[in-house]
Design a protein around this nucleic acid. Structure first.
Lengths: 348, 348
DNA sequence: ATCGTTTCTGGAAACGTTTCTATTTTATGC
DNA sequence: GCATAAAATAGAAACGTTTCCAGAAACGAT
């Protein structure tokens, strides 16, 4: 029993105390404080003063238990230390806070079981809504798990069939196609592509853009240079090493997502290959500071802050009765120094 | 009384339903499920089965209201999108989750008023503990605000006098002194130093190391090159521009913290100055990817993951009755490419 | 058998709100 | 003034648990 008694004032003042002080019924206190219309001015003043004098603060749990609303939103991501997700989380929290909601943060650690445990935990806590970037889209029981939450859901960059939720999707294929086309037009044919599992929209949509660029250019699609598996840096690094030690090695690389990019850069460094010189390199999603580091990285950019804000807005909308909707966020190919190189003094 | 009217799937199953199903009293259900010792084996099995069959999940709010424990920890930071804080948050959440706690995340946006509102919100939610990186240490009412929380507190890199809390402090002065000494030994005398307000431990301890290096080397301390104000990138950028356009401009720069470093790098870029060449540059705290970017930045390093884990551990310890303690985390000067340069072909 | 002790169980009182219902007061129209 | 409606208030019943208390059953020991 952690009962730290500071001075002696640790008397938790309840609605009873206020009622007694003001000399009115408990129900009147509640009515005044929750802004019920049928309250006389005299009562309002009397209650307000008693509450102020006692420094009354309604007990959150009692309110939630009775009313059902928890003013709490669950937020599940693979890994909040990922700076891209960090920005989303920050903007989301700011918006939700403005609307009077608090955010319960949980990392799924990229693990399906952990994610499911987290959702169960959130259900017990009767959250008013959930924003999540799921590990995978086709987990058995996923739909029923989310439906049992009995709260509106906003998914980030995920398409779950048959689920009545909102979604914030990025238009990855456009940016990736632009980037790939640019590389092809510079003379690249052997372009490597590393990203996460095709079990999520993110990868599938990027792949669509990648393939489409080859098709439009009439260049053979280099199946053997496409490596799709996981989003983490370890995978990115090992695959980069594997691909760039092939006999006929790629001349360019697209890395899909923050983790892949980190791994790719580490892998290249260990191989002694310099982006923009020994190969052309485009990162999908930007690391913070991409704009100021000594070396300039090209990227397929999307606005994390906007994604966070849109997610919060969509969720709040659903909480107040609106219907689910899908929001598409654009991506943009940003050309920088690293888009050059990789071709033996042929061009430029 | 819509009790056993289980056609609709959204029937929230309560302890009553389980009691009815098992044919025992409500109190027995509670006893079995909370592992009370005085329960017969027969009862345990009967209740367990009934609960499983109905898929019973205790209501979190009812439990908290009655028992007082919320299994919830508050986590307040200036800005969760700061990758350094992101890592702390991630590790913290993982540890807390293992212990059965959930984490309520709030950004203070670097604003005292927002921070205070957040703390009030957390008090109403009766959190079991708080981990916070406060905006400032000497806010009036801060102590009483935190004491009114009536829950153990762990502060990150802050010293609040008279508050009975744990603290995770970094030994900044050691790392900063090492870095500064190295720069001095390379021939630098005019070393600029940009960091946040001296109203927090972080800055004061860094400054201590900075001054100490000059004293030990017997070199005059360059007061006019020290700029302490805010941790954000805007401040870092404008101060960098100001200092490096002085008539007698600095030959080296230390930037204090993630934000300052971002600002400093932007400022230098706009001035056309290259770290490691036109000036020597040491960042305090590392940006992710410092190890792989084209340009190699020196740093004063501290382990964010460890800070997160230690914070969680210290808090859990206090929750279970332990006393507050202060943990000192070491910092290390890591020399890379950017420690060179800035001296006109004098050395090296 | 009787009498303590344990061990186990059921009933009911909290926890601090909101909300429903019933009652009293006030205002309104004629 | 008087009926009638409307507004304001009090009282009490939830919400779903945990926990206290008292009693019942079980068990040895006399």
């Amino acid at each position: 029993m952690p009962r730290s008694k500071g001075k002696k004032s640790s008397a938790p003042v309840t609605i009873h105390d206020v009622a007694e002080r003001a000399g009115v019924a408990i129900s009147s206190i509640s009515r005044v404080l929750s802004g019920h219309p049928d309250v006389s001015e005299r009562m309002r003043i009397k209650v307000q003063r008693a509450a102020d004098e006692l420094g009354y603060e309604p007990d959150f749990f009692a309110q939630s238990l009775r009313s059902g609303a928890t003013k709490t939103i669950g937020f599940i991501m693979r890994d909040i230390s990922n700076p891209f997700f960090g920005v989303i989380a920050q903007c989301c929290e700011q918006e939700l806070r403005k609307a009077g909601y608090s955010m319960l943060l949980m990392n799924s650690d990229g693990d399906v079981a952990t994610e499911s445990t987290n959702i169960a935990q959130l259900r017990r806590r009767k959250i008013d809504g959930l924003i999540a970037s799921l590990v995978s889209e086709d987990i058995p029981e996923l739909n029923s798990t989310l439906e049992k939450l009995n709260a509106p859901v906003v998914l980030l960059d995920r398409e779950v069939v048959g689920l009545n939720s909102s979604a914030i999707l990025a238009n990855h294929h456009q940016g990736v196609e632009d980037a790939t086309s640019d590389l092809i037009s510079r003379g690249h044919k052997r372009i490597a592509f590393i990203s996460g599992s095709t079990r999520v929209y993110t990868t599938r949509d990027r792949l669509k853009g990648f393939k489409s660029a080859f098709k439009k250019a009439g260049v053979a699609y280099p199946t053997e240079l496409v490596s799709l598996g996981k989003f983490d840096a370890e995978f990115g690094e090992s695959e980069t090493k594997r691909l760039f030690t092939l006999k006929d090695r790629p001349t360019a690389l697209l890395s899909g997502g923050i983790g892949s990019t980190a791994g790719a850069m580490r892998g290249l460094k260990k191989l002694g290959l310099v982006p923009g010189k020994d190969l052309a390199f485009v990162a999908i999603d930007e690391w913070p500071m991409f704009d100021v580091y000594g070396q300039q990285f090209s990227s397929v950019y999307r606005d994390a802050a906007m994604i966070g804000r849109e997610a919060a807005a969509a969720l709040l909308e659903m909480i107040s009765g609106g219907s689910p909707r899908t929001i598409m966020v654009e991506t943009h190919y940003i050309v920088r120094e690293s888009s050059t190189g990789g071709l033996k003094a042929k061009k430029k």
